[in-house]
Design a protein around this nucleic acid. Sequence first.
DNA 1: GTATTTGATGAGAGCGCTAACATCCCTACC
DNA 2: GGTAGGGATGTTAGCGCTCTCATCAAATAC
Lengths: 361, 361
Amino acid sequence: MAERRATTTGMLAGTGSTNGGTHAPGRTAERPPSIADVARFAGVSLQTVSRVVNDHPSVRDITRSRVLAAIEQLGYRPNPAARALASGRSKTLGVVALGTNYYGPASTLLGIEAAAQAHGYFVSVAAVHNLDRQSVRQALRRLTSQSVEGLAVIAPYTSAHEVVSSLPRGFPAVVVEGNPNGHVPVVSVDQALGARLATEHLLAQGRGEVFHVAGPDNWLDAQLRTEAWMGVLREAGLTVNPPIVGDWTARSGYEAGQLLAQVPNARAIFAANDPMALGLLLALQERGRRVPDDVAVVGFDDTPESAFFLPPLTTVRQDFERAGQVAVQVLMEQLAGTGTPDQQLIPPTLVVRQSTVPTAS
Amino acid sequence: MAERRATTTGMLAGTGSTNGGTHAPGRTAERPPSIADVARFAGVSLQTVSRVVNDHPSVRDITRSRVLAAIEQLGYRPNPAARALASGRSKTLGVVALGTNYYGPASTLLGIEAAAQAHGYFVSVAAVHNLDRQSVRQALRRLTSQSVEGLAVIAPYTSAHEVVSSLPRGFPAVVVEGNPNGHVPVVSVDQALGARLATEHLLAQGRGEVFHVAGPDNWLDAQLRTEAWMGVLREAGLTVNPPIVGDWTARSGYEAGQLLAQVPNARAIFAANDPMALGLLLALQERGRRVPDDVAVVGFDDTPESAFFLPPLTTVRQDFERAGQVAVQVLMEQLAGTGTPDQQLIPPTLVVRQSTVPTAS
DNA sequence: GTATTTGATGAGAGCGCTAACATCCCTACC
DNA sequence: GGTAGGGATGTTAGCGCTCTCATCAAATAC
């Protein structure tokens, strides 16, 4: 019964009496066309328009093209809020990202976004600026209070883990760069393998024991790299000097380098990421220790710049983009109801450059 | 007209009669409590619950606390889709970001996210992976087909500009790191000032004309830096050698360095970003040109690593976080209907390190 | 003491869309 | 030729929330 609009210019007469009025603010602006407008314009039912928009098969071609023409004509675009409300599907994934511009996490975020886009999904981001449990919990809450269909948590730091496992069981979620924990699948680069590759490569140079500049304790990646480094040394029957713990920054690498430059038998150093390796290079060379002649240095990450450090850095390449891609894949499978493996490990590779082997030239 | 519900386990008694039945898929899962459930539980009307949730002033304290208790008890959380549909407000900002992990754009994205979060807004990201007009247009369309209330476009590359100006006039939007163009306000770091600071600093070293390794042509920042550099040289009455055009990567800086190492009077070089400066440093020093003794180098960005280059890099610091913050501020003002200035320029600062001045020590 | 304002609450409609069901019409089959 | 089957379309009822307006009580004014 009775229309209830007639608010827009150009649809005056004939639109019935019980206007009922819209209550949304900004009435003055022309209300965008709704599915009903399209239906009226095309002379079909509301439902038919919906079918066309959603690519439902059973619509005759003639009808379909008429509707499409109407859509084009009116400039109709479906209202995602209405769609989400009616269907329960928002086509949006939530991502808990890091508030810092670290190479790995930032790349992962981009990888996830790209993959989500490829699957027709939107990405809503909540960045965590402090790595305490509280902040992570809040970010998670922020996102789940959105209508996200699934959640990807970039969680290389330990405090994220238990928070993630507090997610309602059955809610589609994936942890990227995190601990295999409880019921949430995990996608990550194989840190142990990477550290192993780095350490073994240094060992193979015959420079004796390998020193380690580690990442911060509360990062899982740091822990795994340290453990693997330690494991390799133990297997080789070598002394395991306690690692120098940095904080991922070049500065902390520099400080570690100041210390290590004074250690005569520190002739092979594995830094847990590239920026720390950079700081290390600076400190060592400022103190007259030549790289790679006196000391060999390996990093981790293969940031685009590391090939142009002085000297170019041997490092472990992580394919973050791929990690993001796999993470979205895992989410999609959960949304589709297909079972997924518990953990996906992405193998890193060693990139050998001049910080460990003297120039050929 | 017959019921069509009662399919779910466990939503039998207690949930009242006018349950309203869901038709969404996944019925088996318990439907989350709605505002109606809370209202019933608290013995108030639906509307009162809404008022409590939205902090409407005219609710008695007693009522409010009763409702809050019910909310707590039932674990109620407002459904954002329904809210967006009914109110027209989604509390979400769209951000057109870059699909690449460049320091500036990535930092800006984080800055925007942080600021949006502080304003209680969500951020939906669409990354652009190719910088052609087509991709940008698509990203824009993706976001506007979402229910975003406003749009921030990180647009340091030129193709973004005209696309942005195709936005419906009056739609809240802001361009970050872009051209002042038409009706969309712009927030950006003052590139000209930054390049000026860099060039003048080099000039002050008394090393004669300043060479420039520029960013790619299709980047506005690159253009502005090149122009400003040129301007300073002209004012000083010096020769303006054509800039070597790079692509922001350390590799391109390295290649530029290979060329410039052969130019005897290239004793002062301004690189348009830090990674290119890094490549430059490597190439120069590989060829025996000492920095800063033989050649002085200035970068642009002040990435966290540049302080640990070999030698530490003199560079121009851009406060991207602040840019993001201001951008969100501008959006908020538009949403509030307050007028905003057309362009906000954020001044950069010069950070002097050893790549231009010999070590004091 | 009655009229008026103010504050607190409730009722009802509607936001734009989709799911389920109901029709309708055309073809296929015996 | 009648009936079953199936594709195309229409009808209806929500999804969960907010808006406007109405109501009613308490507080204030005259």
